[in-house]
């Protein structure tokens, strides 16, 4: 009965890594996800080509199944947003370097994440704050120092990306995935596990 009331993270299968890309509207969540998954940037036409991706990646010699959730559209519906916050093992919180307001909105997301996890600290969850649209240098409203300071204040790592040029996109995703794997209490290299099975 208590299990039903448990609103903590629901860990699916041990080696699957669920990563949610979240953030305010129009910061490039979908573009980042698409860029990471397909390697191309969709110009002039933003929304959401796909909802979610499951891909097998090799990271540091380990093969992992990564499930990437694009949460676009859920931003203004806080109680729907919960679903992702409870499900993710790791998060990329995206804001736009060209919109100061989007940086400030991240506070809400982090606060809600803490609430969902019923924890004041973000221990056990990997969170990366990403300033996207780094290519639009002439429209920049947030400096790297400010972005970094915000991330530090929230207790997260920081990176700047450009979904358009692809700069740092892969690195951002891999940083979070690595963080999740390292955080996992009983993480074993899957290759070893498979050997035992075979």
């Amino acid at each position: 009965m208590e299990g039903e009331l448990d609103i903590g993270p629901s860990f699916t299968s041990a080696m699957e890594t669920v990563l949610a890309v979240m953030g305010p509207m129009a910061v490039g969540k979908s573009a980042l996800t698409v860029r990471y998954n397909s390697g191309h940037f969709v110009d002039n036409y933003e929304p959401t080509l796909e909802d979610s991706y499951r891909k097998t990646i090799v990271l540091d010699g380990r093969s992992l199944v990564v499930y990437i959730l694009d949460t676009a559209g859920s931003d203004q519906f806080s109680y729907l947003r919960d679903q992702y916050l409870k499900k993710g093992h790791g998060f990329i919180f995206v804001f736009s370097l060209t919109a100061r307001a989007s940086l400030l909105e991240l506070d809400d997301f982090i606060q809600q994440l803490r609430f969902c996890r019923e924890s004041d600290s973000l221990d056990g969850v990997t969170v990366l704050v990403v300033g996207n649209k780094a290519d639009l240098t002439d429209q920049r409203e947030v400096s790297e120092e400010e972005g970094r300071a915000k991330a530090e204040e929230l207790g997260c790592a920081y990176m700047e990306t450009s979904a358009k040029s692809g700069d740092n996109v892969r690195e951002a995703f891999e940083t979070v995935i690595r963080g999740i794997v390292d955080n996992r209490p009983a993480s074993r290299p899957p290759s070893k596990k498979w050997c035992t099975l075979l």
Binding site: D51, S52, R54, Y67, T71, F77, Y84
Partner: peptide, 12 residues
């Protein structure tokens, strides 16, 4: 992972 699809879709 598919079970979350409806949640994603309605927001789109």
């Amino acid at each position: 992972s598919q079970l979350v699809k409806p949640i994603q879709r309605m927001c789109k």
